[in-house]
Nucleic acid binder design. Structure first.
Lengths: 147, 147
DNA sequence: CAGATTTATATCGTTCACGATGCAAAAATA
DNA sequence: TATTTTTGCATCGTGAACGATATAAATCTG
């Protein structure tokens, strides 16, 4: 009784941790042919929405720090997906812009979300649990991110 | 319209990925004094429930592969939390057992779950979203883990 | 305007997550 | 029993996360 809460099955965080891993894993078969990883896909999503952003804006969007994002962008630059140029108004900034290759991937990635939705829906049966998930996660994220 | 689904805000996986990161981060201030990381805490949870398990059972429980768990256990052995001994009935197995130090941590970790619950509840306001989260995540995990 | 502070980015070290691969022991099958 | 297959564990390499720290530019303050 005393240690009841120290049980794996009682812990929300373990579920989040596992669900996140498995979901990212589900993207793998779609992202592999494009030669990108899931975090790289996230960066592309941000840049496809709006190109030419400084590192800090991308980091904010992804809720990551620059010490995670910088190496990520460096790897993506190396693989030819984007460029990092010095900012003009603020020379501390590095403006990240898509290359042709990075832009072109958008077309190839277009169907990934629906493929994945279908994939997950098929395995989960009903849509219901999924629709409750999103607002609950948003609230959790909002709570945990404020400081 | 065509690219509507390629928006970060529309993606469940990003929420899971972020929520998991932030939640693990919330454990940090509690686990740091104990000198363990979150994945190491998960291993301890499993061993506190039942000591002396082979590597594969721990891996199954955490839904991880041995190529993740083995180095994790090696680090934990190095820091004196557990021992890995050869199995007797099946010599391929490595039986993982808690040391005194590993066992003793249970007492210190006892209040972590309630501290965290309180922490999260305070930031989220209502309990409602949290209670819907758990079964939804379970179903998602179940769907994604079957193969 | 000089000095202090903040901001934007980068680097380093450690720990994970995981695909690929290797190897030996156990189990299944011929 | 001999051969094949499976299982349990380990190693290696790569890419992330993230704490700590560094550096220069921008901003704020006295």
């Amino acid at each position: 009784m005393e240690y009841e809460q120290l049980k794996l099955n009682n812990q929300l965080c373990f579920r989040l941790y596992t669900a996140a891993r498995l979901t990212v894993g589900a993207y793998h078969s779609y992202l592999d042919p494009l030669g990108i990883t899931y975090p790289q896909y996230l960066v592309l999503l941000v840049l496809w929405e709006q190109d030419k952003q400084p590192v800090c804006d991308i980091a904010k969007r992804l809720m990551l720090d620059t010490n995670t994002v910088t190496p990520l962008l460096q790897r993506m630059e190396k693989s030819g997906l984007l460029q990092r140029t010095k900012g003009k108004t603020d020379t501390r900034q590095r403006i990240v812009s898509l290359t042709e290759k990075g832009t072109a991937l958008r077309e190839q990635a277009k169907h990934i979300p629906e493929c994945l939705s279908a994939n997950i829906l098929e395995k989960m049966g009903s849509m219901e649990e999924l629709t409750t998930l999103v607002p609950a996660l948003d609230k959790l994220i909002e709570g945990l991110s404020e400081r």
